[in-house]
Nucleic acid binder design. Structure first.
Lengths: 352, 352
DNA sequence: ACAGTAGATGAACACGTGTGCAGTTATAGT
DNA sequence: ACTATAACTGCACACGTGTTCATCTACTGT
């Protein structure tokens, strides 16, 4: 087979290996195999893969070349039994049909990889997510990162008992056992609302996200606050599911039922759907007759066919904070919990 | 603290762990802990979590309740040392800026979760990906699933030596050590091209993907074949990077430099960019003056503002095959390798 | 009454690794 | 030449789990 010499090939074939007297099923190459092949002790093999360990330089390079030839690689799981970090991090990604969540997860995964942390991603709908997380806790995780969605108390408690640090994003958790990083949602939408009022808008509508999500609620709060400052009230309120299709449907009905000249959406996907149905379905002039503003600043928002005015929910900054929190929590598990707030920025484009 | 009494806390030390006196450091709850708390042997605890193991029913329920109280959960890694499956699957996701890859990964993750397999996702650019995969091979993976991108020979060989099954998607691998499932790319583009010819198109352009990707090459082959059947030749050929932005840039130049009335793109993201620049940048009438056809049928293709004619690269079918291959490979590791081909379908919409 | 069997139980081993410990060798310092 | 120290090495243990094995109990069938 190329990487085994002939006499070894007798004992070492692809189907089964004979070690001592016992015949084993073909499994991973182990440190013992390398030790036998290199004619050294197993300890030496382990030390060869441990930086700064006492080991003769020549012996080390001999071991490493033998390991390379056999395709040996220390089993990270067996190592984790020795108190080493597993470097596994579970990531509960919110619904991926929310385009921001998709961008978020992609970037988080890339940054974790660059930091030598390996994300076990849990996706799917929120209902499935809850059930899927529990079995993942069977692995010795360095941490659990939760994006957006809400989880039951049982998961929290199990994490605490298993000593798995929790990091939340997109949702402020009042709990004392979790770090979290979130956007100042109300500040953002208040700012956007004031700007629209200054432009002469008076009849406001809002399309929120799934029931009970604090991100959506907070964004609504900001709008109401800015409106009341100007002596105005919200004209129309509707609820959707943070998706493009949901935005289309809900906005179509809302724009038909109410006379409004400014529509704020709880996220960009919803706003894109609303923009689509306003322009192509209802033939409204945006932004002449109607302003539409989103939240997040996903990639599509800047595409010329949309050119969506929105509030940037800074992705890189948020993820950088998550990695910082993760790092600090691992180096000092007793550190008090942190709540980090990120400021959104109004991105003025062509829809409002 | 919770489940430790005070006097135990005196001896509690961050470095050491005394088993005899039930003093433990800040780590996972273990089967021994549960055994002591429940007053049974550790074997009994292990059996309580093993279906169909001999264990008194009353004892079992007692163990389970104390386990629940302590938050115990068998360590999957330690279990995998006993020959149990780790249920970990590495997923090398192609570049996430390719929207199809993002959809693909999201769906694959969800389906794997539903099947009780936990994906370690490796993302980022292709250059990073290669380096990131190697350390992930330190975990005892059930399989490695590779989407789209190409990997070096070293990764293949290491997987073979470590006995990790390989499953490719989106790229046909001639190797004998990997299963793969791919789309009949050439058939798809040939079909689309014939239809465009029938509609009177004569001057064809093609924007491909990254250099050397077989998916892009195959799609070009199909076009050339259908053209030559009709005695035609390709008018313009350009290369991009499978992204929306890349599609915009390359199509802008290509449409300015050449007179063409039909533009086929190697994927939908590219086609959306091309459509955008054609309509909003160059003010071309699509489909009156110019037909544009994509490949994949991502979610955005069906949005009314695009209404993109494209070739559906069936996501669910592809992923279903991947899971089938995975399942079969795990139950019968000696099974000969399979190459599965999926038929694309022409989705006739408004752009060509 | 007795053998036979099924159920239940804990001790002990195996899995693959990192590392403390004790022992050996080489090198430097006086 | 002698000592102190550093470099090196292998044995043995620990990590948390599943499972075999021998042992023990309880029950069934004749």
């Amino acid at each position: 087979m190329g990487f085994f010499t002939c006499d070894e090939g007798v004992k070492l074939n692809l189907r089964e290996r004979t070690i001592g007297t016992t015949v084993k099923r073909n499994k991973r190459v182990t440190a013992t195999d390398v030790a036998e092949a290199a004619g050294v002790s197993r300890s030496a093999v382990s030390r060869a893969f441990t930086p700064n360990a006492y080991l003769d330089a020549e012996k080390r390079s001999h071991i490493m070349s033998t390991a390379l030839r056999l395709g040996y690689r220390p089993n990270a799981l067996a190592a984790s039994l020795q108190g080493k970090r597993s470097n596994l991090v579970a990531v509960a990604a919110g619904g991926m049909n929310n385009l921001y969540n998709a961008e978020f997860t992609a970037m988080l995964v890339a940054r974790l990889n660059a930091a030598g942390k390996w994300p076990i991603v849990i996706g799917g709908s929120e209902a499935v997510l809850e059930e899927a997380i529990l079995p993942v806790l069977s692995y010795p995780l360095d941490a659990l990162i939760v994006r957006g969605s809400s989880l039951s108390k049982q998961v929290f408690e199990d994490c605490a008992k298993l000593n798995i640090p929790l990091i939340f994003s997109g949702r402020i958790i009042e709990a004392t056992f979790a770090d979290c990083v979130s956007c100042r949602n109300a500040d953002g939408t208040a700012q956007a609302t004031r700007q629209l009022i200054a432009k002469g808008r008076r009849h406001f509508g809002f399309i929120g996200g799934p029931e009970g999500l604090s991100s959506s609620n907070d964004r609504l709060t900001g709008i109401r606050q800015a409106l009341s400052e100007a002596g105005l009230e919200l004209t129309a309120l509707a609820q959707s599911d943070y998706t493009y299709e949901g935005g289309r449907d809900v906005a179509g009905k809302l724009l038909s039922d109410h006379h409004i000249d400014a529509l704020l959406c709880a996220n960009d996907a919803t706003a894109l759907g609303a923009l689509s149905v306003a322009r192509y379905g209802l033939h409204r002039q945006v932004p002449q007759d109607l302003s539409i503003v989103g939240f997040d600043d996903i990639a599509q928002a800047s595409w010329p066919e949309y050119d969506l005015t929105t509030l940037r929910n800074p992705l890189d900054q948020t993820i950088e904070e998550i990695l910082r929190l993760l790092q600090e929590r691992l180096t000092d598990p007793g550190k008090p919990n942190e709540q980090v707030y990120i400021d959104p920025q109004l991105v003025q484009r062509g829809t409002g």
